[in-house]
Write a protein that binds this DNA or RNA. Structure first.
Lengths: 329, 329
DNA sequence: TAATTCTGAACAAACGATTGTTCAAGGTTG
DNA sequence: CAACCTTGAACAATCGTTTGTTCAGAATTA
């Protein structure tokens, strides 16, 4: 309609290398394009450029606030840079299938991978990917790109806060023994104890996964000890612990203080409202997308980005321990 | 490598019209394809067929269990049918932009749209879409495809249950007055009252949006009345209501029963654990994807699919009203 | 004025599939 | 044995861009 070659249109619309276009021609093309509401066909462009401008994100759970925040962060940043986000909820069962499917069909230029799987499983899944990827809150020996939260520091701060309230017998509701984050958190927990000259007692540490039910189960062990406070790995397991304790007749927070890592709206919905150390999960998604996009643009970014924990949010679940010894139930 | 024309490879791999292929040739091609781990390039196929095999889903919130369940359902069904899901978290602010962007660039074959916007806004947003779309839990006058939850019946059941416990002064924590679902729920609420010959009292109905804070604010009105129970529109507003009441010193559930529509893990995390009427939100996502895929396949499905509410889940937040009159606080 | 450079846009070749058409070779039929 | 089908696969056009190359005409230089 503008009576020019399509190649000219392409050059004008892409905006770059405008040196070889007469202003008059450019204006005419832009005008017609606007009138026609014309946009370059994405698929054709992707084929020609052999880039899809699409990122894939693989998450194990969609209803976990940690992952939904990461998705949000990634999607926003991706959109800002002209990328779209393809989501792939991956059941733990068909591990790796989606990774393979997305990358082998050239549907995505790169992958954001959040996985709770064991190192070896994850590694073999990723071996099939023929695209760059970034790991979320995971470190895998090798050169994989990663964005990690500083769980150790977060755990240290949470524990430190409990100590500052006067607690000396502090339980830890942790994650799976093998998991990367579980170790980190445990280390942070110990670090805080050390700093306060409180001896480490392995009976006060229970491991589970990060589910509500695991929280319920694990806390039964702690209930048998003389712990006066609990530092829980995640919101969800903390919620499980509180539910179970209450069911057993405990007064919260008077008889047991609870603090958790990660923050989300629902910490406030719990009773008592849960004190937390906020973790920058949305930021994690954003940074991961950024890292991946840089990588795709040919840059060679530092492989690992560590994100410091956020602030301590003191709500109602943490109080000073009772002066007297707790009456055993 | 199999020494055949690409067209032959295409025919074999697509699996269809295998009549014109010698078994020997087919096997050879398949073997080589497997050895090379070859998959047809998605982009090229999309260009040639002018179909992206990608669905877009537009949601206002990512951390709301209602939407994440819908996404999960849609993603699963889409994947099963060879489609991918492009996610687009849409801030209420830039309404419609993403709809336009996704569809005008031919990135998606169709759209799944969950929106809390007013009819007119939504309508004008959708006017820009040049692809088929399905509305989630929304009805728009016209021929739009929709999947709706039967909020009316769910509200009726929830209210009915409270009545069966002996409550006669039942408050309703509803949604925005204009909203489609708000009316539905109110109707169900009234229906249950009618059936029990309980007069409708407008003072017992408060409207807000579906947020935690709105729940807190709205419940203050109800706290001034003689209501002994509350039927809340959503989990999140119910949580807000309970938090606020507890803050004001109420004993839950003895002094106020609460039931909410929709169910999710976190209903169980609240204290007292929240009774709910489960809503098939994951199913809604699934059905919406199905409807859209059918439409894209040239079928002409019924425009509206209504999903019946799920079962009543009785937890600890609903009890019989106290026999005596409540002491006003 | 002739030779050269510059400009701006058209030309044309991909990108990797899908799918209608063609066509040689082998089989069948009258 | 000639004419005609059938079969199986190659051939070729196409989808809508991007981008290297070409090229006519205008501008500059010698």
């Amino acid at each position: 309609m503008a009576e020019v070659d399509v190649s000219t249109v392409s050059r004008v619309l892409r905006g770059q290398s405008e040196q070889r276009i007469r202003a008059e021609t450019r204006d005419r093309i832009l005008e017609v394009a606007k009138k026609l509401n014309y946009r370059a066909n994405y698929t054709a462009r992707a084929l020609r450029m052999s880039r899809t401008f699409t990122l894939g994100i693989v998450v194990p759970q969609l209803d976990n606030p940690v992952f939904s925040a990461a998705i949000r962060g990634a999607e926003n940043h991706a959109a800002k840079n002209g990328y779209s986000l393809l989501i792939s909820h991956r059941d733990p069962g068909d591990a790796g299938t989606t990774i393979a499917k997305l990358s082998q069909m050239n549907r995505v230029d790169g992958l954001l991978v959040a996985s709770l799987d064991a190192d070896e499983v994850l590694r073999s899944d990723l071996a099939e990917a023929n695209v760059p990827y970034v790991l979320l809150n995971r470190l895998l020996p090798g050169t994989a790109l990663s964005v990690v939260l500083d769980s150790q520091e977060a755990a240290r701060r949470a524990t430190e806060y409990l100590i500052s309230l006067g607690h000396r017998r502090i339980g830890h509701l942790g994650g799976r023994p093998g998991g990367f984050n579980a170790q980190e958190r445990l280390a942070g927990y110990k670090m805080a104890l050390d700093a306060a000259n409180i001896p480490f007692d392995p009976r006060l540490v229970t491991m589970g996964d990060y589910t509500f039910d695991a929280g319920r189960v694990s806390v039964r062990e702690l209930a048998k000890t003389d712990a006066t406070a609990i530092m829980a790995a995640t919101l969800v397991s903390a919620a499980g612990a509180m539910a179970e304790l209450r069911l057993a007749g405990w007064q919260l927070p008077q008889e047991m203080s609870v603090i958790a890592l990660h923050d989300a709206l629902f910490a406030e919905m719990l009773f008592p409202a849960l004190s937390t150390v906020m973790m920058p999960t949305e930021e994690m998604g954003r940074v991961a997308a950024d890292l991946l996009i840089r990588k795709l643009s040919g840059e060679d970014p530092d492989p690992v980005r560590a994100l410091p924990p956020g602030r301590l949010i003191i709500r109602d679940s943490t109080v000073a321990p009772r002066s007297g010894a707790r009456i055993s139930k």
